[in-house]
Design a protein around this nucleic acid. Sequence first.
RNA 1: GGGGAUGUCGCAUAGUGGCUAUUGCAGUAGACUGUAAAUCUAUCACCUUUCGGUAUCGUUGGUUCGAGUCCAUCCAUCCCCA
Length: 302
Amino acid sequence: MSENKNKLIVIQGATACGKTALAIALAQHFQTEIISADSRQFYSEMTIGTAKPSAEELQTVKHHFIGSETIHHLVTASEFETRGLRLLDELFTKHHTVVLVGGSGMFIDALVNGLDDVPTDDNIKEELNKRFEREGLEKLAQELVSLDASAENTVDLKNPVRVIRALEVVLITGKPFSSFKRQQPKKRPFEAVRFAIDLPRETLYDRINKRVDTMLEQGLWNEVLTLYPHKELQALQTVGYQEFFEHLDGKFSLEEAVELVKRNSRRYAKRQMTWLRRTQDINWLSGQNTQEQVNEILAILS
RNA sequence: GGGGAUGUCGCAUAGUGGCUAUUGCAGUAGACUGUAAAUCUAUCACCUUUCGGUAUCGUUGGUUCGAGUCCAUCCAUCCCCA
């Protein structure tokens, strides 16, 4: 490890595994600030259901990207990369070490390793989304393959989001989506040291289930009601909200909605772990509580 | 004590004589480059790396060329009458 390089301590892990507490403890130890990489905690309108740090916690350590955005403007991984890098430049003038914490694997990877420079066009994207509604996936997938034969092997043709994006890129550039991937991390003016909290599945699921109950006690329901008019926004395609919206639409009972929130949170956590497992250069933390984890991290860093 | 009903892979559920016993949920594994708490795929009785092999419908026995399906028995659960 090069000694003088600024250091970015990255904390990852499934939802409800204790990332927030660990990040705060570390930030306090290093007298520094926290950048949150949580694609839902960005938004000021969603608080309880996204398990943002508490007011006290936010006072203890300065956080960035918590409630700083509005649901009416979707923050993409790419935008997060750009703005995150700018913010890091600024923070590293004051601190040698900064903490990055969050559950959105793709956003963290974007900031740490970079996204390749693939073009995008809102008009084309919108048009494709409309066509998907009208013509269906099959049609778009066929068109994609006719324009880019390699898509057959490189694009998940059963996944509408992937097909539309790949098609968007070919239509803009005439080149295959896959040709833009460089498979190489971008150079960064800092050294990232990555850690992930690893709890036994059973413990994790238990924490998730309990946290949903806590959220309800804290008034999640009221938050849901205020956001219901905006339920179509992408930012609100979120576990812990969508299920209640559907209940309000009359699809199932409140009790069932609660169970679905728990189930979907468990599935989300599982997907997060799948993402992390294939991520390179992760230091897995075996500590079962924040203090143990802090000690592990400090030992590795020294 | 008498009568009735039910028992299918964790849960629910289809199946009343005939190829590999449905389907949903839960669970498990995976994919992911500008929607990512999104979106999508696979798997889900047992053994096997694959091909494939062996089972199974509460129990035991029977009828039948053939039984989850029919008959009997026992066990368990539930309901009603006492």
